[in-house]
């Protein structure tokens, strides 16, 4: 009774129908948003959803009447800075935990692990007082400095460094390579995939910050895009759904392109992690 070995045509068609329905459901909100971004707000307000007055006017308005480009630029700067800092500082601390012998190493590592249990959301009160005292409110720094490093990134890179063959370090010692040289010339290139993965995660993490920038920035000059979109909705544009959707599309489309193009690399990164 070997029925399933060779799937029937009807089975295949049924699978495709199901896949298409699922894709439509998942992408629905996005497609509805994209469609409305091309409609005049008048038509949206009247519920004339199948209007054919399609135009790019909402996009032109979004670019010319809102600081959306500024918001995107702010977010890009903050996210890239956070990513670079985390790659450097997490890899340095991971290096210390793997290749250096010092007193309290295990204790300090335990402390790092413990921080992964502490949600930043529960620490906003003292942190707000701290950055206020440091005069950092409403600057780029306030959104970068608290996230220069992460316990999670350190932990992840430590796992990766631990899997380097011990012979590499021994050979480097014989060659007379110091810690800085070994870290820079061997450890970092050897763990490229893990660094790429951490880079993607730290970038996304910074890009998606919401609560902290909301507390610490008050002007469009520094406001990142997540809070910028909220700002636009609370302003007079609130009922201009066409333009709001256009700003959402402007924000999401570059991310989606990066995601689709990068997915190949991203997936091979995940598989790499699995195989190791």
């Amino acid at each position: 009774m070997n029925i399933v070995a060779k799937p029937k045509l009807s089975h295949t068609i049924l699978n495709y129908i199901l896949l298409i329905v699922l894709a439509a459901v998942v992408l629905g909100p996005f497609l509805i948003g994209l469609w409305t971004s091309f409609l005049p707000t008048m038509d949206i307000a009247k519920g004339n959803f199948l209007s054919l007055h399609l135009s790019l006017q909402n996009y032109i308005d979004a670019f010319t009447q809102t600081p959306i480009i500024r918001y995107l630029g702010n977010s890009l700067f903050i996210s890239v800075a956070t990513m670079i800092a985390q790659l450097i500082f997490c890899s340095m601390s991971a290096y210390a935990f793997v290749f250096l012998k010092f007193k309290y190493r295990n204790f300090l590592f335990g402390l790092f692990l413990a921080t992964m249990m502490l949600p930043f959301e529960a620490e906003i009160i003292p942190n707000f007082t701290t950055v206020k005292a440091l005069g950092l409110l409403n600057t780029y720094s306030v959104m970068i400095i608290p996230f220069l490093t992460s316990a999670f990134g350190t932990f992840m890179l430590r796992q990766s460094f631990l899997q380097m063959p011990a012979e590499l370090k021994e050979a480097a010692d014989i060659e007379g390579l110091g810690h800085f040289q070994f870290y820079w010339k061997i450890a970092l290139p050897y763990n490229k995939i893990s660094l790429l993965t951490l880079g993607a995660y730290s970038f996304l993490g910074a890009w998606n910050q919401y609560l902290w920038p909301m507390l610490t920035t008050f002007s469009n000059a520094y406001r990142p895009v997540q809070n910028g979109l909220r700002q636009l909705q609370s302003e007079e544009t609130f009922n201009d759904w066409g333009m709001i959707q256009a700003t959402a599309a402007i924000v999401v489309i570059p991310t989606l392109i990066v995601l689709f193009v990068g997915q190949h690399y991203f997936k091979s990164g995940m598989n790499e992690g699995a195989v190791k």
């Binding site: 601390s93 210390a96 921080t115 810690h179």
Partner: peptide
Amino acid sequence: FLGPSLLILSVFIFYPM
């Protein structure tokens, strides 16, 4: 190697907790 991370975590995670 550990200093920078330790400083940031101390100021923005340990102390506030």
